[in-house]
Design a protein around this nucleic acid. Structure first.
Lengths: 347, 347
DNA sequence: TCTATTCCTTGGATCGATCCAAACCGGTTG
DNA sequence: CAACCGGTTTGGATCGATCCAAGGAATAGA
């Protein structure tokens, strides 16, 4: 041990520092070294100093595998990635969550599953074989069986997305879609718009219904007409056709959309008709993706960094102190980012 | 499976099946059970049958933590996620890699790092503390110190992206950018274009230089003029200004771009000038992102599923059989997806 | 001085798997 | 009949950490 370099850089794999080697060097027992690291308050200061010096010299880093074997805790969280096409919101959430979990000394392990049934099947294996401590679930929807399965088996989880049927017995974090579309609609009303349409998804339960509800609430509160919403799956082409119907049927001067992708469809239809987005017909999207930024589209930005931070905090709390009291539930407001597509009053 | 009590669903945490409990039930030693799983050829058939029956009944799943402690192998790969803005190509790669690695019984663990230096600092910790077996690196560039650091410390890695300075002593997978832009340029030439410009990135080494080179090669081969390339960072706004310069300075009838984002900038500038993309001036992008799909932009699709499959295969080979012979290097061709932005001949 | 109490420290068992060397076994072979 | 053999099987040590119960030293009270 004359060689001071304990780091991976300067040594061969055989000379990794262990709890035992640190203990030997500091002249104490392994348990004391462990206490210095895990329960510093129960070791005398001078002893701790000796141990810390040894840790420093040897470049000791506690190894997870050993601890994990004893404690049955891996400090690893599972996150499913959809194998369908990339979803900008999910991907930004994933990045933020990696950061937020890392700050609490948790790591993310990825897995794929074709659908919820496959995901539920994967849980047992991930838990038994890989010792995953808990899960962060996304894309909750009415009839979601994943959370009930997990709570039945006693596996901690947090969801990004509220439970849409029962109140749920797990902590969750979500973005207030209704609040967002309501703010968007009120912004349009304050600009002078009176005929404001909604372009949403076919499924009016869950997220889609929430966003629709905010639009409807704002109009009702302002005593304005509720034009029949138009619906399309989340695709620019479909969105464009649906926008065409909406324009023909109801003649709105502004359209609130359930997503940026639908908004993009609406904008192309408007441009195709020789009208100008913003000047002739206002459009507002949801998610504040690249699409919004490059096309000057007003949109609702989800506070994904905060969502991730809360998610990490909630599951860490669940794992470390168990569930004391009712699960915490966090609802965050999206931010309306105003761009040219909605900043001109109607003529 | 008449009784599901072996699965996580039907049991309390205390009754997990272990190698020992399987051995006891089958009336053999732990080692024999281990052999049935890891070296089936060295156990007699009737013994194996007994053991397999016990495994089935108990729902036994070998636990990684124990194996990992002994073998120093975790079957976990590290992948860095950028905490800068989301990158559609990276995200699709991540999804595909999770799948591909999973098929080989490897899992992905994520980590973040602000820059390469921070990433190098993170390696030691990830290896010592979390027992990560190897890394999949993305975004290689000239002067990249990560791979040399890893090879110096003997940690296996594969890169998505070729090494841009030396030939590298590690396996890699990359997409042939030059081949792609060359094909794109040849497609434009076959449409009748003669003045074809290039809108690229400021940095002409690495990926950007590769894509530029393909364009130049096609023009040289066809004996057409090499218009001065225009350059901008990867942003639609910057791309638009650079496109304006290019249009003013060289009067091209077609523009090959280093990315879809730049192409989007070019398209807005063209539209702003009252010209039509495709009919008046052709544009081709790179990456085949959502942008391309929704705006009818011809683009080069990177075969990310194949890239991921090769990456997983190469690092698995490195981990399982060590490096026998020179590292394998895979170069895949992107696919030209033709859309309206380039399908009309120039007038 | 002696015991009680608190605070700190220690040795040994343990988690679940794999590695290793030795034992076993039915069947040749010298 | 003993030595030998390859193919199987076994017990015990081991990886690196934590849990547990007991040991020891210092302080306080009797």
């Amino acid at each position: 041990m004359t060689d001071s370099s304990g780091s991976a850089a300067g040594r061969s794999a055989s000379t990794r520092a262990t709890l035992g080697s640190v203990a030997a060097m500091a002249g104490v027992s392994k348990q004391t070294v462990s206490n210095v690291i895990n329960s510093p308050q129960m070791v005398r200061e001078d002893t701790a100093a000796k141990v810390l010096a040894a840790i420093e010299v040897l470049g000791y880093r506690p190894n997870r595998a050993g601890a994990q074997l004893r404690t049955r805790r891996s400090r690893v969280l599972g996150l499913r990635v959809q194998n369908r096409f990339a979803d900008a919101v999910f991907d930004r959430f994933l990045h933020a969550l990696t950061d937020a979990a890392g700050a609490l000394d948790y790591r993310l392990m990825l897995y794929t599953a074709a659908d919820d049934t496959a995901e539920i099947k994967a849980y047992d294996e991930l838990i038994d074989r890989w010792d995953i401590d808990g899960f962060v679930l996304t894309g909750t929807h009415p009839g979601d069986e994943r959370t009930s399965y997990l709570s039945r088996t006693g596996v901690p989880c947090v969801t990004f997305g509220r439970p849409w049927d029962d109140s749920g017995h797990h902590p969750w974090v979500d973005v207030d879609g209704a609040g967002g579309t309501r703010a968007a609609t009120e912004h349009l009303i304050s600009q002078g718009h009176r005929r404001i349409g909604f372009l949403g998804w076919p499924d009016s339960s869950g997220v889609g219904g929430d966003r629709l509800a905010g639009w409807a609430a704002a109009l009702t509160a302002a005593d304005l007409p509720l034009l029949e919403p138009s619906r399309a799956v989340n695709d620019a082409g479909q969105g464009r056709s649906a926008a065409a119907e909406l324009l023909d049927a109801a003649g709105p001067t502004a359209i609130v959309c359930a997503s940026d992708v639908l908004a993009l469809g609406a904008m192309s239809e408007i441009a195709f008709r020789g009208k100008k987005v913003g000047e002739d017909i206002a459009v507002i999207g949801f998610d504040d993706t690249d699409i919004a930024e490059v096309s000057g589209l007003t949109s609702l930005a989800q506070p994904l960094v905060d969502v991730a931070a809360h998610s990490a905090r909630l599951i860490a709390a669940l794992l470390e102190s168990g569930s004391a009291g009712p699960p915490e539930q966090v609802l965050l407001a999206p931010e309306l980012v105003i761009r040219p597509s909605s900043s001109t009053p109607p003529h």
